[in-house]
């Protein structure tokens, strides 16, 4: 190919390397890629650039136990090319944890949306955008589910599903049919939480993780905010040394929570938030 200057396909190489082409574009570009050395060379280099972006994430050391876990899981599954008859006894061990049916890890009924923003005022403005965005998401989710089904024969065990299922089982017992649930995460490798709000029982459960314990003399305080009104304290909690907490708090009767958020406050809590809220979630009104 010598059409270098007018080679329209080159417009797609960067987006392709970033995985950002729409599905139809990607399919036609991949068909072209198979036959074009110019684009293939370009993609190869841009993929390396994209790969380097991974190193821009804040560097965090994985827990030491993860290495052992990966190796012990590897021991129970042979690589695809190396499954020889003499090693067949190795493949799926009877002792592996039971896999969790996909529907067991689905979201509780009426899961609503998910937000974290620097300050609550910004949340209202983005709610419409979130619901809009979820339409894209559900399409993509359905598509990736289909793709994964095709790939399913190669998957020996879905350890993510199993682990999520285990972790969710505690929470699931708290969840009644009318409970709304929201997951929130901060930016980067920062705290995340799930809230479970049972409006009928006036109860909210927060399960926080990756949240360092508040310093001595300080605590975390959960706020419920009714549209147009000042925040109301729902209670305080603190995380353990592993950064986790599970707190069940009472919602004052009559409070119609539109937003929940957490602040760090002096021990005992404050009458009104004195620091920047985080782990903010919006709630659908009943």
């Amino acid at each position: 190919m010598t059409e270098r200057i007018d080679h329209d396909w080159l417009q797609h190489t960067a987006a392709y390397a970033l995985g950002a082409l729409a599905d139809e574009e990607r399919a036609s570009f991949e068909a072209h890629l198979a036959t074009c050395d110019t684009c293939a060379a370009e993609v190869r280099e841009l993929r390396e650039v994209a790969g380097l972006l991974a190193t821009a994430a804040p560097q965090i050391a994985p827990p030491p136990a993860l290495r052992d876990r990966i190796l012990s899981e590897a021991r129970s599954v042979r690589p695809i090319s190396s499954a020889t008859p003499s090693q067949n006894g190795h493949t799926t061990s009877a002792g592996s944890p039971p896999s969790v049916p996909a529907d067991r890890r689905g979201p509780p009924a009426r899961r609503s949306s998910v937000v974290v923003l620097p300050w609550i005022a910004a949340i209202a403005a983005s709610v419409a955008a979130i619901f809009f965005g979820q339409q894209y998401r559900s399409e993509r989710t359905a598509r990736s589910a289909a793709e994964r089904a095709l790939d399913g024969a190669r998957l020996t065990m879905d350890s993510t599903a199993a682990a999520l299922g285990r972790r969710d089982s505690l929470i699931a017992s708290l969840v009644a049919p009318d409970v709304q649930a929201v997951s929130v995460t901060g930016t980067g490798p920062s705290p995340s939480a799930r809230y479970f709000l049972d409006r009928r029982a006036n109860r909210i459960v927060i399960a926080a993780s990756s949240l360092p314990p508040a310093a001595s003399g300080r605590t975390y305080q959960v706020w419920g905010i009714e549209t147009g009104r000042p925040p109301v304290s729902l209670g305080t909690f603190n995380t353990d040394s592993s950064g986790r907490a599970l707190a069940s708090l009472t919602v004052p009767a009559g409070l119609r929570i539109a937003v929940t958020a957490v602040t760090e406050e002096p021990a005992g809590g404050s009458a009104q938030p004195t620091t920047t809220p985080f782990l903010a979630a919006t709630w659908k009104s009943e």
């Binding site: 991974a54 994985p62 590897a74 350890s159 995460t185 995340s192 993780s209 990756s210 950064g243």
Partner: peptide, 28 residues
């Protein structure tokens, strides 16, 4: 590459516990 993978996973999924699952899955 485990550290790179874990850091990247943390940046994308937020929760460390989830990032561990991601990295375990990725290396599997």
């Amino acid at each position: 590459y485990g550290g790179m993978a874990f850091s990247l996973a943390c940046a994308i999924v937020g929760e460390h516990a989830d990032a561990e699952e991601v990295v375990a899955d990725a290396f599997a």
